[in-house]
């Protein structure tokens, strides 16, 4: 029983991390229809930048996070304006090729600049253990889960309750009508892409402070985020959150009771089952978009 509680706690923690990183992808892939294979590299860049600003510029974690958010928003904006813009409305294949190329470029540039060693980010709170009955967590993990929740909520409020958010929803429902109504859709696309990038990067920095930042580790992050987006439903906020938690829990329980060497199977099993039984995902926004 104690073991089960611990597995569930582990699963919920890693699930909330999956949710945050998948949220960025659900905006870019689910709403903008850009199959973004560079998502894991945006996550990695967030970690590397976070390491740079905390270690070299000596900023504290929160100030560092703000700097990373601003820098990555600008980066995401530029990527959209100068790269994604050129393949918009040309189907999915050009954007797949473009983002695969971008991911290779980013990984290798980062390898060139910071090298292959894993990087440590000094966390916002100490990494001391916290005992909740039989369950062990650390302060840093609890903090990261809280930070994930805050970021998710902030993104939600931004999309639901601001002018920019309304413009986004309008643009993705019907770009032509949105343009006729006077919305500058080019800026909406760029803002959405920037928001997705920021979500990926901030989860990269948060998790970098718990684990470590690995420059070559972007591929697995991308794959897991795709799993969550497909499970949750493309473009769905609730889907990304529930999907992330389900993936985290499933992996923890499989790892705990079956074998931890095969946990990465779970994600792909979930994708196959989703595509067979619920091809639009758990919380499909298909109807809204039609």
């Amino acid at each position: 029983m104690d073991m089960l509680l611990q597995f569930v706690a582990n699963g919920l923690v890693s699930g909330s991390f999956y949710a945050l990183s998948a949220l960025g992808l659900t905006l870019i892939f689910g709403l903008m229809r850009v199959v973004n294979f560079a998502h894991g590299e945006f996550y990695m860049l967030g970690g590397v930048l976070g390491w740079f600003v905390t270690t070299y510029l000596g900023l504290n974690f929160f100030v560092g996070l703000v700097v990373v958010v601003v820098a990555m928003a600008a980066f995401g904006w530029l990527v959209d304006r100068f790269l994604i813009e050129r393949v918009r409305d040309q189907g999915e294949e050009p954007s797949i090729l473009l983002t695969i190329g971008l991911s290779i470029f980013l990984t290798n540039s980062a390898l060139l600049v910071v090298g292959t060693a894993p990087l440590n980010i000094a966390g916002a709170v100490p990494n001391a253990p916290v005992f909740l009955g039989p369950v062990v967590l650390t302060q840093m993990r609890l903090f990261a889960v809280a930070a994930c929740a805050v970021l998710i909520l902030a993104a939600y409020l931004l999309i639901r309750h601001t002018r920019l958010g309304r413009a986004m929803r309008a643009t993705f429902q019907d770009p032509m009508a949105a343009r006729l109504a006077g919305i500058k859709t080019a800026y909406v696309y760029a803002s959405t892409f920037a928001l997705g990038t920021v979500l990926a990067a901030s989860s990269g920095m948060l998790l970098g402070s718990i684990y470590s930042v690995q420059v070559s580790g972007g591929g697995l992050i991308s794959l897991k985020a795709f799993v969550v987006v497909i499970l949750g439903g493309m473009g769905s906020f609730a889907g990304a959150i529930v999907g992330g938690l389900i993936l985290g829990l499933a992996e923890a329980l499989w790892g705990g009771y079956v074998s931890s060497g095969t946990v990465d199977v779970i994600g792909f099993l979930i994708v196959i089952l989703t595509l067979i039984f619920k091809p639009y995902g758990l919380f499909s926004t298909q109807v809204e978009r039609a």
């Binding site: 684990y211 690995q214 580790g217 697995l220 074998s259 931890s260």
Partner: peptide
């Protein structure tokens, strides 16, 4: 006896088993 994949970042599940 347990194995984990290259690039894994979270070992808490494995460690739970180890502790028990």
């Amino acid at each position: 006896t347990e194995y984990f994949n290259h690039g894994s970042s979270d070992f808490y599940t494995l460690l739970t088993k180890l502790r028990n």
